[in-house]
Every structure is written in C-alpha cells, then in structure tokens.
C-alpha cells in the first residue's frame, strides 16, 4: 500500500447558471481583461489516500466523486493529478 495525494476539480456543469462564475467574469471585465470569456468557480479537493498504485488511487477517488464529492445532477469532476507522497 502506497500513499498518494489525488487532486480533483469539481466544476458546475456547463450550461447551468453559475452565479459565482458570472460575478467573477464581470469583475475581470471591469478590470480590463476583455479577452476573458467565461469563468467557472468550483472546488478543488486534495485527497490523501492509500492504494496499491496510482491507477487504483485514481479509481478510488472517481468512486468518491460519484458517491459524495460531486453532485451527479449539476456538477462535473476531473482528476487533476495523482502524486506519490
């Protein structure tokens, strides 16, 4: 069993109104960042877990996302990184 740090991004599903993202977009436009299109505000989680290898650690975190960390109705998730501790 090896220890891993698995990072996961959880973001509002595209097409659903994201009021935080919209507020940040508007503020960036006000600051002159005219090239900014859309901003999406989500969550970043870092999960320290034991697994036999990196693939198993990632698979385990995917299951965690499906069961608890992301809402299947309104959110998408992506594994951002798997690092051996």
């Amino acid at each position: 069993m090896t220890r891993f740090r698995v990072s996961v991004h959880i973001i509002p599903r595209r097409g659903l109104l994201d009021p935080q993202g919209k507020a940040v977009t508007d503020a960036l436009h006000t600051l002159g960042f005219a090239a900014v299109g859309e901003v999406h505000v989500g969550r970043h989680l870092v999960i320290e877990t034991g697994a036999k290898d990196a693939a198993a650690a990632e698979a385990s975190v995917r299951t965690m996302c499906e069961r608890l960390l992301a809402n299947p109705v309104t959110e998408d998730f992506e594994i951002a990184g798997v690092v051996k501790e």
Binding site: P12, L16, L17, P19, Q20, N71, V73, T74
Partner: peptide
Amino acid sequence: ACEAGLLPGALLRNDVG
C-alpha cells in the same frame, strides 16, 4: 432529500445571493 435521491433534481446557489 434531493441529495439522498428521495426527490429528483438539485438545489443550486441562488442567482443573486
């Protein structure tokens, strides 16, 4: 109840706070 799957759908952050 929505999170538990007892009801359909989800409740998201309000459009204006």
